[in-house]
């Protein structure tokens, strides 16, 4: 049985080679340890990197671990790179992605109805990018496809799980519309006849 030190060291090497998020299950079975034990070692490694303020950090994505650069170093890294074209999502893509992320599983019809405009193309693009995927079919008439976000989405947005999405309540507060206190305020006092 390899020592704890050996296992952690092996995990570190695996993270380096793997590059992409490494499933704890795979790492655990490679070292012949329990998944929970392996997860503990990954957490320890993660903590050690954080505490020492390393330039490389370990992040967790849906039970997978990945080496990433420390975000504080981004500007330094950028300064050694020739300007790279940043690939941004369009406003439409962000809207659709937000709807899918917060309302999933959601059908195309529901997305269209919230946005008031057809979203098929945008949804196709997001699927092609791997951010959104088919999560089965709804029981509604026509059995429409249900869409949901993927692990690629989590990675792209640096979220451990979907629970880490910006909270919906915070947003509600940001809406500065004031709802009328009582129904009386809503009553139309005069007829709206225009100018």
């Amino acid at each position: 049985m390899p020592s704890k030190k050996t296992i952690k060291s092996a995990f570190e090497s695996m993270l380096f080679v793997w590059g992409e998020p490494l499933d704890v299950k795979i790492a655990a079975s490679a070292m012949n340890v329990e998944k929970t034990e392996a997860a503990g070692y990954f957490k320890e490694l993660q903590q050690e990197y954080d505490e020492q303020g390393r330039g490389i950090r370990i992040r967790e994505i849906n039970g997978k671990y990945q080496f990433v650069t420390a975000e504080d170093n981004f500007d330094y890294i950028r300064s050694i790179c020739t300007p790279v074209h940043e690939r941004r999502l369009t406003q439409a893509a962000l809207e659709v992605l937000a709807i899918v992320a917060y309302k999933q599983p959601v059908t195309k019809g529901e997305i269209d109805s919230i946005r008031g405009v057809k979203s098929e193309r945008v949804l196709e693009g997001l699927t092609k990018k791997g951010l959104v995927e088919d999560k089965g079919r709804s029981d509604q008439i026509g059995r429409p496809i249900l869409y949901g976000t993927t692990d690629v989405f989590l990675t792209h947005f640096d979220l451990k799980t979907l629970k880490e999405l910006p909270a919906i309540e915070d947003i509600e507060d940001a809406l500065q519309y004031t709802e009328p206190q009582s129904a009386a305020d809503l009553r139309q006092t005069s007829l709206d006849l225009g100018q």
């Binding site: 406003q91 992605l97 937000a98 709807i99 919230i114 947005f157 910006p166 947003i171 509600e172």
Partner: peptide
């Protein structure tokens, strides 16, 4: 609401 959420995830 979703427009704001879109800004948040951006």
């Amino acid at each position: 609401r979703f427009k704001r959420l879109a800004a948040a995830i951006e």
